[in-house]
Design a protein around this nucleic acid. Structure first.
Lengths: 108, 108
DNA sequence: TTTGAATATCGCAATTTTACGATATAAAGT
DNA sequence: ACTTTATATCGTAAAATTGCGATATTCAAA
């Protein structure tokens, strides 16, 4: 069981995460990875997620900046990282995103 | 009809507005003004909203800072200001808040 | 019309966020 | 082992956010 303060911190992280346009764009792209990212050899686009390299390319931001945005989304619990060989793939945590959406629709 | 860019700007303002704990606290208090604010002589607590002075007192922030937070919420279209005599009262724009919540639940 | 109270705005400091280059680490192929 | 590629981290600069004091403005009462 989590403390109230910890839950508020978690909500704060999630709301700050979606308060940034680049991070919302990433979440949007990951809704349909096949439509937005090229085919991958090492990791299924849907099952494992999109490769950080492709996300970086589409964002048009530097690698450290992209990594920072992805970390913010992971720390907020909105996307799930999966390391395969030397790559990290990211996919949406649909359950967490749905929970957040429901929470906001009900309690905002 | 609004442009897509203008709609994205509006969403950005709304998400940035609720990304701040103080502003979320204000929205929370305004859900039940009678429970959180003292009776008012000049303006109905529910119909017109809570007086900025009382909101400031509860926040424990300076007047200019409180005014800034209230402006952010007004500019985001989440609360409605009403000037009566020398006071400004604020109440939730329930329709706008519900729209935002629904939007996030469906499209996040 | 002066006084007092509420609100709005200005200017500025402190903090946080965003972005990047440099560099370190990790993993794979040569 | 060495090189290449992907990722992570460090340090730092620029921009945005948050907060406040000082001050202007607004409005009503004295």
């Amino acid at each position: 069981m989590e403390s109230v303060a910890a839950m508020k911190d978690a909500l704060d992280r999630q709301l700050k995460a979606i308060a940034n346009p680049h991070r919302r764009q990433i979440l949007e792209w990951l809704k349909d990875p096949r439509a937005h990212f090229p085919p991958q050899v090492d990791g299924d686009l849907v099952e494992d997620g999109a490769c950080a390299v492709f996300i970086m390319d589409k964002l048009g931001l530097a690698q450290p900046t992209t990594a920072q945005h992805l970390k913010a989304l992971v720390d907020a619990g909105l996307i799930l990282p999966k390391r395969i060989r030397q790559w990290t793939f990211y996919r949406r945590d649909e359950a967490a995103i749905a929970d957040l959406g429901k929470m906001l629709a009900e309690r905002l």
